[in-house]
């Protein structure tokens, strides 16, 4: 694990969020978020339910619109310009809590759809890439099944493979394991660890603290729409600074 944290983090900036604010109607969900992510960095975001973790990472690929401040992804400024939004989305992969696979398409079609239509990759090539990534998440033999025929853990791994097929430079995960049974959590986490070891830039909302200790360079704690504390995992878990962090950690590690 020390070996992992020592993995190369370049000086290049992948995501830069400045003074970002978001409201749902009059409800102030995100307040003055400042966050810089270097290329190759692996960040775990945690915090109590309703603290705005999902909203934050959904703002990064414009699934939610922010009202104030700026977000720059990979040098592209996120504005309401649809061209920029589509560009950013095709560079940023996202995995959801409920997988969101397309139930009317086979696993292989799920994986080749975006490369074919967005990247204009020839079908053959897209299928080869898809099989490559399905092998990587260890389910090449399910390629011709439909999502409904797979277990939850397998579906989530397909979802990861589907994102990877677009060859994203940044991956966002929103509680990828919280809809899964314990024995399936491990298979998904293993896939994510492997991805981290290859140097993928990752932002991951999760409550899997073992995973955070093993792969994260930085853990961010959010509460009530603000970043309350951020630190290296060892420091964060062993020596939390704010009272809210201490309370949160005692609740999730405490039992």
């Amino acid at each position: 694990m020390t070996e992992n944290t020592a993995m190369q983090v370049s000086e290049e900036v992948a995501i830069e969020i400045r003074n970002m604010n978001k409201w749902y109607g009059t409800f102030h969900v995100l307040r003055d978020i400042d966050l810089t992510v270097q290329r190759g960095e692996r960040i775990v975001i945690c915090g109590p339910s309703g603290s705005g973790k999902s909203t934050l990472i959904r703002c990064i690929n414009a699934l939610e619109e922010h009202q104030k401040g700026s977000i720059v992804v990979d040098g592209t400024v996120l504005s309401s310009d649809l061209k920029n939004i589509d560009k950013i989305r095709s560079e940023v992969g996202m995995c959801f809590q409920h997988f969101n696979l397309f139930p009317h398409l086979t696993i292989l079609e799920n994986c080749t759809l975006a490369p074919i239509w967005v990247r204009k990759t020839p079908k053959r090539e897209a299928e080869e890439t898809a099989m490559h990534f399905l092998e990587k998440v260890k389910i090449p033999d399910q390629a011709n099944k439909y999502p409904g025929q797979l277990s939850g853990g397998q579906q989530q791994r397909v979802a990861i493979a589907r994102s990877l097929c677009m060859r994203p430079r940044i991956m966002l995960f929103d509680e990828p394991t919280s809809a899964l049974d314990p024995e399936m959590i491990k298979e998904v986490l293993d896939t994510m660890i492997e991805l981290a070891e290859e140097g993928m830039t990752m932002l991951c909302v999760t409550h899997e603290m073992g995973f955070a200790r093993q792969v994260a360079n930085r853990v961010i704690f959010m509460d009530a729409g603000q970043i309350v504390e951020q630190n290296e995992p060892e420091e964060f878990f062993n020596n939390p600074q704010s009272d809210r962090t201490k309370l949160f950690l005692s609740q999730i590690l405490g039992h």
Partner: peptide, 11 residues
Amino acid sequence: GQYEAADSLGL
């Protein structure tokens, strides 16, 4: 989620 997944893939 279906709309979001399609959006997040850049379609």
